[in-house]
């Protein structure tokens, strides 16, 4: 049937011709080399004992590696913008989920201390050996010396 084919209101000249982006091999080799270097960097970061800073840096390196893979190996750089938008939306949701939950876990103990309620923090919990303050004689739940 040689009837013209329309797509979303626009007439399509040669409907079954599809154009793809084919990147030269050298791009893949370069990305592969970069990934190996970055893996080495991840090792270096862990042995360079930056203390508290090591986690963010390690995450930064991993994110760089990830964006290399996503952009070139998965052709996201040359694809329709909507795929990138979908991927970023899911990353934003993940960040939101992490942010609120970690904020809440962090704040749970802090608020109790702030009000000088003298309530033992989360880690001690009940499992530790301090006497449960119910019926027996009460002394402030001393931080147990076990740890």
């Amino acid at each position: 049937m040689s009837e013209y084919v329309f797509l979303n209101g626009k007439r399509v000249e040669n409907p079954h011709e599809s154009h793809h982006h084919i990147s030269p091999v050298i791009v893949y080799v370069a990305v592969f080399a970069a990934l190996l270097v970055l893996t080495g960097l991840t090792y270096a970061v862990s042995f360079a004992n930056l203390g508290p800073g090591s986690l963010p840096v390690a995450m930064l390196v991993a994110t760089m590696k990830a964006s290399l893979v996503v952009a070139f190996f998965m052709h996201l750089a040359y694809e329709d913008r909507f795929y990138l938008f979908m991927f970023l939306t899911s990353l934003v949701l993940i960040a939101l989920f992490f942010g609120f939950v970690l904020f809440d876990v962090n704040a749970a103990g802090a608020l109790n201390d702030e009000q000088a309620v003298g309530v033992p923090r989360l880690e001690e919990g009940l499992k530790a050996s301090e006497t449960a303050p119910v019926a027996g004689e009460v002394e402030a739940p001393a931080p147990d010396a076990g740890h």
Partner: peptide
């Protein structure tokens, strides 16, 4: 529920 008063140690 078990209600205990630290000021009055004893039973619930």
């Amino acid at each position: 529920w078990t209600v205990a008063y630290p000021q009055f140690p004893g039973g619930p």
